[in-house]
């Protein structure tokens, strides 16, 4: 690992000022499960590491009917999946944070870091997208919000400007009769990277017969996590008993742009997108029905 400067600010203002001073050469550190590995392997050369785990705002979990869920960017996965309120209301989020890495990784890795790392395979990112989550960002020029589906711009690249910090994530309170699910395909049974991942959320009507709205997001089939608006739209207003799930799966396959790599061929990935989209929707609908 190349030598680097390390600072651990105690306030948000200090963190932003340190990030601003470091410019292009600075990176925020939370769990470090991506950043430190990349620095050790020489894949990410960072001159200034700003450890933001000491900043209060990045460690918050707050949840209310009115404001929905706010998760600080440094909150590790285990705090999310052990939170009773989140387990009850945001099952589609628990699906992904409980399968990132193994138990040891989940004790360090943060959902915010998963988003900032912007891997196309990022499991947590898919859950954020299907739940309509928003990234709360602060920087030298003030605060702004970025929709999570717009946050990742290329493999390993995100929408943050130099000096900006992802402070927290806001997930809206689900509507009534809503359900969500994330699942992935991996060659073994744990501690693996998605060959394909699919997240789906649905809102059903009062009779739980038709789909009011739906969101679908795909992992590992494009340079970034892929929000497939068309697949969700195809489900709007359709009955859950109809073949609309099959149609949505075809939209998802049409949107996917997978490549061949050591984890699987493009053809196989396209096939998996179809299978997993149907499976994700099925569970999301079941969860909505059981609301």
């Amino acid at each position: 690992m190349k030598p680097f400067e390390y600072v651990k600010p105690n306030t948000l203002a200090e963190a932003i000022s340190a990030l601003d001073a470091g410019g292009e050469d600075a990176r925020a550190l939370s769990g470090g499960t991506d950043l430190i590995v990349q620095m050790r392997a020489g894949r990410n050369v960072v001159g200034n590491v700003i450890d933001v785990k000491g900043v209060t705002e990045t460690n918050v979990i707050s949840h209310s009917k009115k404001d929905g869920l706010t998760i600080g960017s440094s909150v590790p996965c285990y705090r999310i999946y052990n939170d009773e309120g989140i387990k009850k209301t945001y099952a589609g989020l628990v699906d992904s944070v409980s399968i990132i890495g193994g138990t040891g990784i989940q004790g360090r890795a943060s959902l915010g870091g998963n988003l900032c790392n912007a891997a196309p395979s990022g499991d947590g990112i898919q859950s954020l997208i299907i739940l309509g989550a928003v990234a709360n960002v602060e920087g030298p020029n003030g605060a702004r919000q970025i929709a999570t589906e717009d946050f990742c711009t290329a493999p390993g690249q995100n929408a943050l400007n130099p000096g900006e910090l992802l402070v927290s994530l806001s997930v809206p309170e689900p509507e009534s009769n809503a359900g969500a699910h994330y699942l992935r395909f991996i060659p073994r049974n744990e501690m693996d990277i998605a060959v394909v991942g699919v997240g789906a959320s649905v809102v059903l009507d009062a009779e739980k017969k038709s789909i009011v709205s739906a969101r679908i997001s795909l992992a590992s089939v494009a340079p970034t996590p892929l929000f497939v608006e068309a697949a969700g739209d195809a489900l709007k207003g359709t009955e859950i008993a109809s073949d609309s799930v099959e149609k949505a799966a075809i939209f998802a396959q049409e949107a996917a742009r997978p490549i061949d790599d050591m984890r699987g061929t493009a053809d196989y990935r396209l096939h998996l997108v179809g299978v997993l989209t149907k499976r994700a929707l099925k569970v999301a609908i079941e969860r909505a029905e059981n609301q």
């Binding site: 193994g102 073994r188 049974n189 744990e190 501690m191 693996d192 990277i193 050591m262």
Partner: peptide
């Protein structure tokens, strides 16, 4: 050899 870490070279875990 393209898979040069235990992240990419899969061996079974207890779950397997």
């Amino acid at each position: 050899v393209s898979n040069v870490t235990f992240g990419d070279y899969k061996i079974p875990t207890m779950a397997d």
